[in-house]
Nucleic acid binder design. Structure first.
Lengths: 353, 353
DNA sequence: TCGCATAGTGTAAGCGCTTACAGAAAGCGC
DNA sequence: GCGCTTTCTGTAAGCGCTTACACTATGCGA
């Protein structure tokens, strides 16, 4: 085994308590200068490094925070969210000398099943990247004493107990739709994401607010429920419903896709009908995934400050762990509209009528 | 605090030893079926989850492996190596139920300074992504009892103590240069990487071997020492030395860049001289970074199986931790030449003479 | 019926640290 | 010279587990 505190104590001819005191600062009492140096010297000579685990057990603090992921392929490279988020988290942890332990599980179910065991000792707090709301797990976790913060998930929290860091979906969606309205659009379709993600509801809220602010009546028939990872044909069906099955005067002149994949799929479906983007239909997405910039025409969309979300989440958690922040703190970061080439004023009235 | 083994023992009316036995299997003796169920039931009722730290301390095994990085910006997104590598590591750890702790430090020095403290208890083994050879740290670490494997670093190891997973630089470089030779090139320049990375020497070895295999005499004047992250102008200077300061008949007809950044920089310098690629000069790089495919013309280069390297490294380490593999095991994975548009036969003799 | 394996359980000694508490030594005022 | 701080150091009790060992019931063959 590695050298322990006992060897150092023997070498320095002091008790282990003294060694611990000089090496970890705490312990209340001060140590005489001479003893201090004797211990330091012994530790150096023996290349002693205290055991993090033993120290963690004794102190009840590991200086380690857990990051829980359930990505099927825990693919830092292929997931557009994970990478930047991890970057943000790591940057903060590096600065604050925290270690980061990655709990990666293959499935949502597995992540849920293992979650409680992370609560015990391994780490001081949890960063949860489990954006689905269809489980009571978060509630259960809140009942425990382990601090955690939700990353990219600002779900409703009536009891005010959840900490989270996320983009401000409502405001960002409102701005996106506001942009469309400012261009002159009045019939704006909303192609929603899956409601297991809280962001869908929030983006829909933003959509409604923008309409309301502009005095445009909300038309439920323009809102199409959807899935985050659109099944092939789902968006196509939405387009069919709103274009093929309606008289021209009732068709939307713009589409707000609740994520870029949806928006891009809508672009395809629209183009297949001979509609030009943005001349005939404007399009705005959400997320600003790499594909958005690469699309033809490049997609106007809302960029999430993912890295910053990771940073804020990490900071928030550390504050909670250190008892500097109360539960219920929410960090909502502004999204940013990336103006590209898929939005324009609606076709002129004269032409339409 | 969270519920401990004592509560469970009390609830089930057994000793903590029995609880431990049923919950962790070990302990030699078997537990009566009825007792077993009583304990399980109690544990469930109390939502007991054993402390990983305490267990780790007692067992001397944490089921956690450390990944040591020293990226300035620990940027999973911007570093072309880190992301895929992490993916590979995580995939293996997920499968084998290991946790991954990220030790990220800002600088090489800091990483070195902290390395020894990771040796103690925190994790069962270390994955080292510290490809620089200009430190004795790896040797020092080898003297300790903590198993580790080098990732993307297959440095010379006279004592046969180091485990590593890396691309087979020698073979890949030999293949790359062999490809150039097969096309008819005889004067092939080597634009080397920084020698703090062992890959430079290895790629140069491969270069020499390819020459040797083809019976082409080695011309040291064609070998240009370099840096991995080429300072502006460094590659330009190399091109100047080999083209501007030589008679045409002695100029290289091809360049092997030890990494894509070098190759791409060489392409620029060459083009600035009116040389066409690949008509006048062929070019092959190494790494296949995203920019290689995006370049104009797209760069022919050697792809590293980065994800696989991460996987093999993780597997190797786990084998070592479990005592299933002896030190000194090296996993050298084949690179793959990605044929794109920067290699062609050299200009015909008739035209050159 | 006794002796002996065998199964099941408890006791206690760790794992390597921290830290409350106690005790010893030294310094001080009176 | 006495009692009092003050300063330093050691003792020991944890932290929450695992596991060697001891012990008590059983069951079985003789």
């Amino acid at each position: 085994m590695a050298v322990s505190i006992y060897e150092v104590a023997a070498e320095a001819k002091v008790s282990i308590a003294t060694v611990s005191r000089v090496l970890s600062g705490g312990g209340g009492a001060r140590v005489a200068r001479a003893t201090q140096e004797r211990v330091l010297e012994a530790a150096r000579r023996l290349e002693y490094h205290p055991s993090g685990v033993a120290r963690g057990l004794a102190r009840g603090r590991m200086n380690t925070v857990g990051l829980v992921l359930y990505y099927e392929q825990p693919s830092v490279t292929s997931d557009p969210y994970l990478g930047p988020c991890l970057d943000g988290v790591l940057a903060v942890h590096k600065r604050d000398h925290q270690n980061t332990v990655l709990f990666t599980k293959s499935s949502w179910e597995e992540a849920l099943a293992h979650l409680p065991s992370y609560c015990n000792g391994y780490c001081d707090g949890l960063l949860l990247m489990l954006p689905r709301t269809d489980s009571a797990i978060v509630g259960e976790l809140a009942a425990r004493d382990l601090p955690f913060v939700l990353v990219g998930d600002s779900r409703d929290d009536p009891d005010g107990l959840l900490c989270c860091a996320d983009v401000d979906n409502v405001a960002a969606a409102e701005a996106a739709v506001g942009h469309l309205i400012a261009l002159g659009h009045r019939r704006i379709a909303a192609f929603c994401g899956d409601t297991v993600f809280c962001s869908s509801g929030q983006r829909l809220d933003g959509y409604r607010r923008a309409l309301e602010a502009a005095g445009i009546p909300f038309d439920p028939s323009l809102v199409r429920p959807g899935t985050y990872f659109p099944r092939p044909g789902a968006v196509e069906a939405d387009v069919r419903a709103l274009w093929d099955e309606r008289p021209e005067s009732e068709r939307p002149t713009a589409v707000f896709g609740f994520n870029d994949a949806i928006a891009l799929a809508a672009a395809d479906a629209l183009r297949a009908r001979g509609l030009r983007i943005p001349a005939d239909v404007s399009l705005i997405g959400f997320d600003d995934v790499p594909a958005a910039a690469a699309a033809d025409p490049p997609l106007t969309t809302v960029r999430q400050p993912i890295r910053a979300i990771g940073e804020r989440a990490a900071e928030l958690l550390l504050a909670r762990v250190n008892g500097e922040a109360e539960p219920g703190r929410r960090a909502l970061l502004p999204g940013e509209i990336i103006f590209r080439a898929t939005t324009a004023p609606p076709p002129s009235r004269s032409r339409r009528l």
